[in-house]
Design a protein around this nucleic acid. Structure first.
Lengths: 179, 179
DNA sequence: TGGACGATGTCAGTCGCTGACATCACCGAC
DNA sequence: GTCGGTGATGTCAGCGACTGACATCGTCCA
């Protein structure tokens, strides 16, 4: 519902009551809860689609690619899909950042995305622990890149690539690998 | 409160009312909420101490170590501190796994741990993005290792080391590292 | 026409959580 | 020893999120 988003930005999440949202949307409080599991869920409608995008990208990756490349590419795919909604993402992120309760929910969505990605990797034959780890890495990259995207750079896929580069840089630090 | 933990395991989290917990603990519902911010927080009492352990370990690491080694060692420290409470951790994990709402809270705690770790890394001079990424990696390793610990291996620090090994293996895939 | 079905409204109730105020035990100052 | 302060607890009233049960209504199809 756009009514909810508007009210959340106007007067803040906690100051907004479900009755308020329902009224502005022209429905009953009861039917609000028939559309959304709870008051927070309104802001996470697209999460299902995002997850499908990632899972599909993982499944479609060339068999020769390693787990890390696969998740990296999948996250970039997701970034491409979100690219043209930066303003919306920003507004949403602002509300979420201002509300611990919503932050919680977002973390849950990302974690769910992570386990779905891990499952998709396992379907490719990646052993369970490696799959879980690679998926978590992918989510970590997504988080960091998202932050960069809404604060600094307008190019989300580029942020993903940059974060991936940082990631591999972490594994080849100052000391020369083998003297 | 141990009263809460007991009731949560006995009849499940959602079936347990705060009034129940308070009654078993011999206090009022009101004083329950004076001790804990909300019904979930009871299960996350130790999280502050855990975070302090990790942050302290990061701050105390030798200046020559790279970010990844630093967080890895810090997580191992945390693992050592938890090592002798495996049964408790198990029971707690079972309750949490059975309750989405509690899963959410746990993710929030881990995320908070992550940002604290990132801040500690930045204090060492690690640049912000690398710090954030390394911290997320540390949390990811912790998650995976924890899972291994309570299901398979009784040695938590060893699980951390194993997960760290898997992590670096991800960056040196199928092609043999050194023939 | 009628009847099945899905979306919505209505109502009552439970539970998490909070603010305001009272009570009480303990403890140091005088 | 008493007084006053302080911190922990109890009491009470109330709001808001969420749910279950039942009624209503529109739509579409036989």
């Amino acid at each position: 519902m756009l009514a909810a988003l508007a009210l959340y930005t106007e007067r803040g999440y906690e100051q907004t009551t479900v009755a308020d949202i329902a009224q502005r949307a022209g429905v009953t409080e009861r039917t609000f809860f028939r559309h959304f599991a709870d008051k927070r869920e309104v802001l996470f409608d697209g999460s299902g689609a995002l997850q499908e995008t990632v899972v599909a990208a993982i499944a479609a990756a060339p068999a020769s690619d390693g787990p890390l490349d696969v998740v990296g590419a999948a996250m970039e795919r997701a970034a491409v899909a979100m690219q043209d909604r930066r303003d919306f993402a920003r507004q949403r992120a602002a509300i979420i950042a201002a509300t611990p309760s919503l932050h919680e929910r977002e973390l849950l969505k990302l974690a769910t995305l992570g386990t779905a990605a891990a499952a998709a990797l396992r379907d490719r034959g990646v052993p369970p622990v490696a799959a879980a780890l690679a998926a978590e890495l992918g989510v970590a990259v997504f988080k960091v890149a998202f932050e960069q995207w809404i604060t600094d750079s307008p190019d989300f896929p580029a942020c993903i690539r940059a974060a991936l580069a940082e990631l591999s840089a972490l594994h080849t630090p100052s000391p020369a690998p083998r003297p």
